[in-house]
Amino acid sequence: MLEHLELFFKSIFIDNMVFAVFLGMCSYLAVSKKVSTAVGLGAAVIFVLGVTVPLNWLLDKYLLQDGALVWLGPEYADYDLSFLSFILFIATIATMVQLVEIVVEKFSPSLYNSLGIFLPLIAVNCAILGGSLFMQTRDIPNIGLALNYGISSGIGWFLAILAIAAIREKIRYSNVPAPLRGLGITFIITGLMGIGFQSFGGMLTGDNEPPEETQSTTVETTKEEKEIKEEIEDNEKAISYNEAINK
């Protein structure tokens, strides 16, 4: 249960699809002019991610991984088909998107019209394929967590596009320098939002820190607690900074 909760918050805030890894930027920039369309697309992304990540997890587990074909018989144990994963993942995704398109057209024609070209483009939304590829590289251990990962990444993307759409609706009344209007200012705002989201990085430090430290902080009074947290954050910054330099 705890690992589910951790993965859930981690995928929404810390590894946010848009702000941490820049996935799905094309539709994020193009469809974020109005909140209502943004909500529609965001919901579609949550759904498609929630379906494709577990499906691709199954494919990865029983078809692609090194030795995954062993269920066919012991003579298949040496096969490693992982180089085929791109093509299989994208085929799954394209099929699912087609399905979603048919369903949305049937049940909500108004949403279908407002999403326009962007519904088929979900197939080439990097967030969807990225979800599956990250699921593969991070070795998500079981299908429940894969489902969780898909849905929570989708929610993270949804929150991001909702936030930027709301800001862009407001910014129409502001006096932005002419060359920055539209795309330029959206980029910079996204950057600033990304910096904001970086602060969630300290939320789940989990296994990096020794347990005694966290216990001692809970005992201290609130004021000291803040100071210690700041110290820890500073340390982390220094560490990541050093790492960056070393690279």
Partner: peptide, 14 residues
């Protein structure tokens, strides 16, 4: 950090 890339691209557009 990743968000800096967005700001750099924003400035290029500017």
């Amino acid at each position: 950090i990743p968000p800096a890339a967005l700001i750099v691209v924003g400035i290029i557009i500017w």
